[in-house]
Amino acid sequence: MSAKREIAERRGREGEAQAAQWLAAQGWIILGERVKTSLGEIDLIAARQGIVAFVEVKWRRHPGNLAEAIDERRLARVAAAVEIVAHEYATGGEDIRIDVILLAPGTKPRHIENAWMP
C-alpha cells in the first residue's frame, strides 16, 4: 500500500471513530464497525428507537469537497452490502435505513438520514 493510501486509510478510520462517538452522543447504540461483506464494507451500524441505520462515513480535508463525497454508485454498493447482513442486526422488526455522515475539519458532522431510497 502506498504512503498516500495509508494516510487516507488512517484518516478514514479516524473519521469513522469520530462519527461513532457523535452518534453515541445522539443516543445511538453502535452495533458494528467496519462490517465486511462479499459486496463491500459498512462503516457503522447503529440502532435507536426502532431503527437500525447502516452508516456510510465520508471524511474530507476541505468542507467544500463534502458535496462530492457521496454519490448514487457508492450508496448502491453500501445498499448491496446491507442486504447481506441486515437480518443479523434488525432482528426485532426494526426499520432499516442507510444514512451518511459527512465530516470535515472545523465543521459539525452532517447526518443525512435515509440517504438511499432506490
Rank of each mutant, 00 (worst) to 15 (best):
I51Q: 09
R13G: 06
R10E: 10
G12F: 03
E14Y: 10
I45Y: 01
R61D: 15
K58E: 05
A20M: 10
Q49K: 14
Q21N: 11
G50H: 04
R10P: 02
T37G: 07
A47R: 13
A46L: 07
R13S: 05
L31V: 07
I45M: 04
A20E: 05
T37R: 05
P63Y: 07
Q49T: 08
V55A: 01
V35E: 15
K58R: 15
Q26I: 06
R13A: 10
R11A: 03
R61N: 11
A24E: 15
I42Y: 03
L44W: 02
A25Q: 13
A47G: 10
W22S: 05
G64C: 08
A46R: 00
L39W: 08
D43C: 08
E33V: 11
P63W: 06
L44S: 03
K58P: 02
I51P: 00
A20H: 03
E14R: 13
A17W: 04
V35G: 08
W22I: 06
A19F: 09
V57E: 00
Q26V: 06
E16G: 04
E56G: 09
Q26K: 14
H62Y: 13
Q21P: 02
E56L: 13
W28L: 02
S38I: 05
E56F: 06
V57N: 00
Q18F: 13
K58H: 11
I30G: 02
F54Q: 01
W59S: 15
V52E: 01
I29P: 00
G12D: 07
Q49F: 07
F54C: 08
I51H: 08
G50L: 04
W59E: 09
A17V: 10
A25K: 15
G40Y: 04
I51Y: 06
V55H: 01
G12A: 09
Q21S: 13
H62N: 14
E16L: 12
V52Q: 04
L39S: 14
A47I: 03
R11D: 12
S38G: 11
R61E: 14
L31Y: 08
E41Q: 11
A53R: 03
R11Q: 11
H62A: 09
V55N: 04
I45F: 02
G12T: 10
E41N: 09
G27T: 11
G15L: 01
A24Y: 08
A17M: 10
E56H: 13
A25M: 10
T37D: 05
K36L: 13
E14P: 04
R11G: 01
R11L: 14
Q21T: 14
P63S: 07
K36W: 06
G27N: 06
A47V: 04
H62R: 15
W28Q: 02
L23Q: 00
G32A: 10
V57F: 01
